[in-house]
Amino acid sequence: MAVGARSGREPEGGSGRPEDESAEHADGPGGSGQDDGPDGGRSKGKRRIPFWLEIPFLIVIALGLALLIKTFLVQAFSIPSESMQNALQKGDRVLVDKLTPWFGGEPERGEVIVFHDPDGWLANEPVTEPNSVQRFLSFIGLMPSSEEKDLIKRVIGVPGDTVECNGTGPLKVNGKALDEPYVFPGNTPCSPDDGGGKFKVTVPDGKFWVMGDHRQSSLDSRYHQNDENAGMVPADEVVGRAIVVAWPPTRWSTLSVPDTFDQPGLNAALGAAPGVLGLAGAVPLVLWRRRVTARRTDG
């Protein structure tokens, strides 16, 4: 007889194992296929919660996430006027990045920002009283807030900049004339009137000079130079940067920074600072390297 061969006839099915052995492996010691409960009976399977009972829980989670996103990440705002035409039309809905300011980021030239009313800029503007549903949807960020007095303008000057204009323009930043393709067609860069067409200001730390793209229809920094901020927008009043036109779908677009703010020489007043700082940081490194090299040579 060959080594390893079984004597006798194998059971049907070719398992090669006795029926009682296979039954023991399938059902366990009890032979039932289920674990016995503590009282010797069979344990019952867990019942699944019906979906309709999970709906309120899912709604609470969804609303919590919406509130979290609105508070820290992105919020929708409605454009109430024509002051930012043609980049933004009245009735547009924009999404505003609220995350960047939390990490210390500040607005840059050319960005479109939303900010709280600095000092009564909207004092004479009517506010529509929202109903309870609108108030709730605004609270969780699914609708733009109609109660908060917020404005949207383009940043022209950042701390340290000198912004000036005489008559109809051009608008200058640090002595460089800006080519502004975003200005509303037919408008001049500044207004011909004395109130908003002639100014020269230096932006202090922590504040920004803002202007609307529809220059002859925007009561911006030019017309509030007598307020407590001299027409500037304090950094702590900035909600965030408008990044996308989200509604209506036919108006969907991103709000990028125009190339005019990348022209050479615009940062002339601050252009030497990086080089000086780089040199100051390199000197200790070079001295340390020379000292290490000298020690190795002496050794």
Rank of each mutant, 00 (worst) to 15 (best):
S22T: 06
V112L: 13
V112F: 13
Q85E: 14
K44S: 15
P264F: 05
E164F: 03
E54Q: 15
F184T: 14
S217E: 13
L178N: 05
V283R: 03
N166T: 13
F199C: 00
L88N: 04
K198W: 04
I69A: 11
D193N: 15
L285P: 00
G265S: 08
V244K: 02
W102L: 15
E148G: 13
G206K: 00
G8M: 04
V74W: 11
S138C: 06
C165I: 08
G175Y: 06
V239T: 08
A123I: 02
G4I: 01
Q34G: 11
F72D: 10
I152M: 03
R17Q: 12
G299N: 10
K70N: 15
N226D: 14
R42Q: 11
M84S: 12
L122Q: 09
L285A: 15
I61H: 02
A230D: 12
G167T: 04
V276A: 03
K153L: 05
A76K: 13
L67I: 09
L287D: 00
V127S: 04
K198V: 07
E54S: 12
K176Q: 14
E12F: 14
D220G: 08
N187C: 11
R154M: 10
S145E: 00
R215A: 05
H25L: 15
R295M: 11
A2E: 15
G30E: 13
L63K: 01
P189V: 02
T260W: 04
E82G: 11
G186P: 11
I152E: 02
F208N: 03
D119P: 01
N174Q: 10
P192Y: 10
T128Y: 00
L285E: 01
I243W: 15
D117A: 08
V257D: 00
P126Q: 00
D35I: 07
A26W: 09
K200W: 08
G30W: 12
V183L: 06
F51Q: 04
G28Y: 10
N226S: 14
E82C: 02
P192K: 14
L219Y: 12
D117R: 02
K153D: 09
R251F: 01
K176V: 15
P80H: 01
G104H: 12
T297H: 08
S32G: 09
R289T: 06
